[in-house]
Amino acid sequence: MPAETNLPTNVEAATPEGLERSRAARAALKQVETEPGAKKPDPIVIADNITRTFGGLTAVDVEHVEIQRGVITALIGPNGAGKTTFFNLLTGFDRPDTGSWSFNGTSLNKVPAYKVARMGMVRTFQLTKVLAKLTVLENMRVGATRQRGESFFSAMFAPLWRAEEEANTEKANHLLERFLLIKKREDFAGELSGGQRKLLEMARALMADPELVMLDEPMAGVNPALKQSLLGHVKSLRDEGRTVLFVEHDMDMVRDISDWVIVMAQGKVIAEGPPDSVMGDQRVIDAYLGAHHDTALTFEEEERILAEAEKELEEEAESND
């Protein structure tokens, strides 16, 4: 398991129970066979026969996949593999053509996105969605679920929701501190840099106290230094006992922090396993680089290709004259 790299994680976030649980969950993963659709000892999400087509294109065609509770699972694959679409399907932002999937044993078929989030499965977006004209603190407060002051009639009577609001503000302050945004508390979210937006989105998702955090390309468009810090934050989520599923297409990022990797290509799950075994998998290399990349070209072959290309160029030049 490569998860014990010394990255700057926020130790305060980790709870003893959380650490214990995630350690046990990771240990349990060792027994899992590394085949697509492998059964996990303690799955939090189970998906079966999920398909989604856009016109003639089958974007997602997943036969069976399970996500282990308490670990960091990475969903990787080349561009256009259907990772984000699969993500949207799981979180209720899109509807699959067929299939069934469940969270903690509850079926999520036809459950709208907002209810999925309330169940404890909160996602972020590839292109960050901060609420630009709200302050950072207000962004955080929106994140809390089941607020009394969010119903129309009690909204008008502040005493009904003031205590709750204070508790949420307290919680938001702690999270902002942890995600290094406390100095930006009163700024508009629209003024934050790209990396800070990623942090804010992650922190905001935590306001809902999710059991499963789903991050859609958390490292996209972030500078290398911040990438390290973001990796630390993702790890800290696991260390406080949450399950993390994240989409990424950069394999190096994945190697550092994930406990389990699921590889998608052309809508299908093609491989699964701990990062090291997946990186060496022939199917994965083929998916990323194209098949037959490793048959080295012989000298004769090279000559032949060169000659062909030259001939083509000449013909083109002639026809242009």
Binding site: F93, A113, Y114, A117, V122, T124, F125, L131, R146, E150
Partner: peptide, 8 residues
Amino acid sequence: DAVRSLGK
């Protein structure tokens, strides 16, 4: 969509 993802 952000609001939807936060359970509203």
